[in-house]
């Protein structure tokens, strides 16, 4: 199998492509493959040149923490959930998420997701109690990994400076449905930082690894 990776040594150096060759079990995930590749004795690329170890982020290795989000064969996904058996052809092309600054190789800085939530003060404050009918929706929204895949695919999201994207909309729903003190302010912030910029392309819904019903969050927030 051929593995083509967009590499970058540091935030300030130029990215470059590097290709590797290797045999991996079909049931291996892209995350497992990166690990195997990294720990061959010495890492050499297809031209026989020595290569630095590939930097990528992981934690749970079972699709529950969002660390390993990257672009695999053009599709943003969690590397620990993409299996080689499902890859068409015998080349895997791996790139870092492009809407975030690269730290090194496949590691990117997704801090903007948290900064925007912090800027908009998305927290409950005085708790109002929850409508039991909303339980399933709240539970689903509570599973957001802050992985950034929804922002990567969104045609309206660029760098998070004005439009904050789907992850923000879901957290706004979590607050507005239960907070007495913050409901109004959050709804206002939602209108400014989400509603005005969303063209309902809804690519965020398809890509979400947690299958969060973002559309329902948007519908409920828009009605407020």
């Amino acid at each position: 199998m051929r593995i083509k990776i967009l590499r970058q040594m540091s935030p300030v150096t130029e990215p470059y492509w590097q290709e590797f060759e290797g045999d991996f079990a079909k049931d291996q995930s892209v995350a497992g493959m990166l690990d195997e590749l990294n720990y061959k004795d010495d890492l050499f690329d297809v031209n026989g040149d020595p290569a630095p170890r590939i930097q990528w982020e992981c934690s749970c290795l079972q699709g529950m923490c969002g660390a390993c989000a990257m672009v695999i064969n053009g599709r943003p996904a969690l590397a620990c959930e993409v299996f080689l058996r499902d890859i068409k052809g015998d080349t895997v092309v791996i790139e870092p998420l492009k809407k975030f600054a690269t730290i090194s190789d496949l590691v990117v800085d997704r801090g903007i997701i948290h900064q925007n939530l912090k800027k908009a003060n998305v927290y409950i404050g005085e708790y109002e109690g929850a409508d039991p009918k909303e339980y399933d929706h709240m539970y689903a929204a509570g599973k957001c990994l802050k992985c950034g895949l929804c922002l990567e695919v969104c045609p309206n999201y660029s760098d998070g400076s004005s439009f904050y994207g789907a992850a923000f909309a879901n957290d706004c729903f979590l607050i507005a449905s239960r907070s007495k003190s913050r409901k109004k302010a959050i709804t206002k912030s939602y209108q400014k930082n989400f509603e005005q910029g969303c063209s309902k392309a809804l690519s965020c819904v398809d890509v979400c690894p947690m299958k969060i019903p973002t559309l329902a969050s948007i519908a409920k927030m828009n009605r407020r």
Binding site: M64, H114, V122, I124, G142, K143, I175
Partner: peptide, 16 residues
Amino acid sequence: KQIVTALVMEARGFEG
């Protein structure tokens, strides 16, 4: 996960 989500929100208030 649900506890982390809630505590992250609560901490966010103090981060603000």
